[in-house]
């Protein structure tokens, strides 16, 4: 009995020390982590929006849903909205949630799509989601560098499509990547959900001029 108490006390003390340490580190790193994440999102935004002079996150409209959120981020120049980025998600990825950002220009046509978060199969689903340069031995030695946004055959096929053609996902025409049909369909689902949400709120954010 005495030993049981001694061992329980020892384990309790060790767990308490661990808790104190974790609480301290969590408090210490909370702010820098939030800052680093915001920086990453702002970087993604700069890639798809034309130059803007406001902070789109300050002017954002957030639409909460049961398992996530959509954000409407207007990019302004001289207080006029010149383009809009919608961030949203789908749950139909091969391994769960896929988060995307879609940029629309003033005519409501898609300028660019980027996938900000996903857990798709490396080598297959990542072909759909990642904007990563395809390296070969030749390109390694030729020293050519792509500036700006890296092209992705799948994501780029939607560029220039109009908002109204995207709301019904069964009518969207696209070429899926072979071997990654589920991921391809999931990205299309994300785009169409984003378009649907944007269409609902398009009047509330004022005309895009």
């Amino acid at each position: 009995m005495k030993e049981t108490i001694r061992l329980t006390a020892a384990l309790t003390i060790i767990c308490m020390i661990a808790t104190v340490l974790l609480t301290y580190v969590n408090d210490l790193t909370k702010e820098p982590i939030a800052k680093a994440q915001a920086l990453q999102k702002a970087k993604a935004l700069k890639q798809i929006l034309p130059p803007f002079d406001n902070n789109p996150f300050d002017d954002a409209i957030t639409l909460k849903t049961s398992d996530g959120e959509f954000k409407i981020l207007p990019g302004k120049q001289n207080n006029k909205i010149i383009s809009v980025v919608i961030s949203g998600y789908t749950m139909q990825g091969f391994s769960g949630k896929i988060e995307a950002m879609v940029g629309f220009d003033k005519n409501q046509n898609i300028t660019n799509i980027i996938i900000t978060k996903h857990a798709e199969t490396p080598g297959l689903g990542t072909k759909v989601c990642n904007r990563k340069e395809q390296k070969t031995l030749n390109s390694l030695f030729s020293n050519k560098k792509i500036t700006g946004i890296v092209p992705n055959k799948f994501l780029d096929q939607f560029n220039g499509r109009n908002l109204v053609t995207l709301t019904n996902k069964d009518k969207i025409k696209f070429d899926a990547i072979s071997g990654a049909t589920v991921s391809s369909k999931a990205v299309v689902d994300a785009v169409s959900r984003i378009a649907t949400e944007y269409l609902k709120y398009i009047n509330k954010i004022g005309d895009v001029k």
């Binding site: 974790l22 580190v25 790193t29 820098p32 982590i33 680093a36």
Partner: peptide, 11 residues
């Protein structure tokens, strides 16, 4: 591990 993960995320 949790401490390392937090510090890495931050810095």
């Amino acid at each position: 591990v949790t401490i390392v993960k937090n510090l890495m995320d931050a810095y």
